[in-house]
């Protein structure tokens, strides 16, 4: 018998929190992006955990789709970063604040 599911859940909560922290505090867009991936991974981990706990393949199916969407998201996001960088030659999120009220 393996480790109980609740342990995994705690771990993924920790991972999610760290990702959120990175997203809030870092200024480099790329690192913010990576933090986002960490959060996605945390959610994936919970899905797989629940899939095991409930004995149902559905959770894993959902993870599969999350992976696909994450891949697409990274591609487009990095494309946007490239486009921004070409104009601003900076990868700092705080420089993009022309929408300030």
């Amino acid at each position: 018998m393996t480790v109980p599911g609740s342990w995994y859940l705690v771990l993924s909560a920790l991972l999610f929190s760290l990702g959120a922290l990175g997203f809030f505090t870092r200024r480099n867009i790329l690192i913010m992006f990576m933090s986002l991936e960490l959060m996605l991974n945390a959610v994936n981990l919970t899905f797989v955990t629940f899939s095991r706990m409930l004995g149902d393949i559905g959770g894993q199916t959902l993870v599969f789709f999350v992976l696909v969407v994450a891949a697409a998201e990274v591609v487009v996001g990095l494309g946007i970063i490239m486009a921004i960088f070409r104009r601003r030659s900076s990868a700092t999120a705080d420089d993009l604040s022309i929408f300030r009220g």
Binding site: F24, A93, D94, S97, G101
Partner: peptide, 17 residues
């Protein structure tokens, strides 16, 4: 209220969270 709209993505993300 204008000050809320700082224009910083991270700030907005924080509000959302």
């Amino acid at each position: 209220v204008r000050k809320v709209q700082s224009g910083y993505i991270r700030n907005y993300a924080l509000y959302i969270s």
